[in-house]
């Protein structure tokens, strides 16, 4: 049984069935424990259940069976609103297609991370600038995203995810839209963040990318296997 009180993420017998006809077993009996400071890659071909795992771990979706603890909190027991609050404050998301708002500057995009935390605006700009500094984009803070390269845009998205020091950085194919050189720099950045103690879970279909992580798990037909 995973140690629910110390792991950042602990899944116990988690299953997710989509009620289609016939039902799809996207996740079957998944046990997984991610400790604080882990730098883990989740691999698997498309249709293997990667996205479902991401949604469950990211508190975007609830498992249909089993139990999920996030930082010791039983998430399956939470209401939708509570899950949203947890997600807002404790999980930083990074997506394949960056999801930056086109009409807002880099700085405003990063500041948006705090909008749903009911924070006062005092110090928000400074916090966002500090996050931009961590990804090395301070000189670009007044640019619009469209004037940045793909790698820079992804670093803005990472800065947004870092705002408010989340317990988990959840990256969904973060290098999927980038060339290999740029991908390498993003992964270097992840290495650096891992070195600062951040817990990172990255979902990818690319073994080359997954190799950079310190721990790799493989999903196949909704079942989990650890890659040693």
């Amino acid at each position: 049984m995973p140690d629910a009180s110390h792991a950042v993420v602990a899944l116990e017998g988690v299953g997710r069935v989509y009620p289609t006809d016939p039902p799809v077993n996207a996740l079957v009996d998944v046990d997984l424990s991610i400790a604080a400071g882990d730098w883990m890659a989740v691999e698997g071909p498309s249709g293997s259940g990667k996205s479902t795992l991401l949604n469950v771990v990211g508190c975007l979706d609830s498992p249909t069976s089993g139990t999920y603890w996030f930082e010791g909190i039983d998430v399956s027991d939470l209401t939708d609103r509570e899950r949203t609050g947890l997600r807002s404050r404790r999980i930083g998301f990074v997506f394949q297609s960056f999801h930056l708002l086109r009409y807002r500057t880099v700085l405003e995009n990063v500041m948006m991370a705090e909008v749903y935390r009911r924070h006062s605006r005092g110090g928000r700009k400074e916090r966002a600038l500090a996050a931009l500094d961590r990804v090395g984009l301070t000189p670009r803070s007044d640019f619009l995203p469209m004037h940045l390269s793909g790698g820079e845009q992804q670093r803005v998205a990472i800065a947004r995810a870092l705002l408010g020091s989340p317990g988990l950085l959840l990256a969904d194919e973060p290098t999927g839209n980038l060339d290999s050189a740029t991908s390498a720099r993003i992964l270097d950045l992840f290495d650096g963040l891992h070195g600062e103690g951040l817990t990172i879970v990255m979902i990818t279909h690319d073994p080359e990318v997954a190799r950079r992580a310190h721990r790799r798990i493989h999903l196949r037909d909704g079942r989990l296997e650890e890659v040693r």
Partner: peptide, 26 residues
């Protein structure tokens, strides 16, 4: 754990107005 507080998300009126006007003037 259930009753220990899970911080809920929320938005201040100022931020809401800001987001809406940014959406409008985009």
């Amino acid at each position: 754990r259930r009753t220990s507080k899970v911080p809920l998300s929320g938005i201040t009126p100022v931020d809401l107005a800001d987001e809406a006007s940014a959406g409008l003037f985009a």
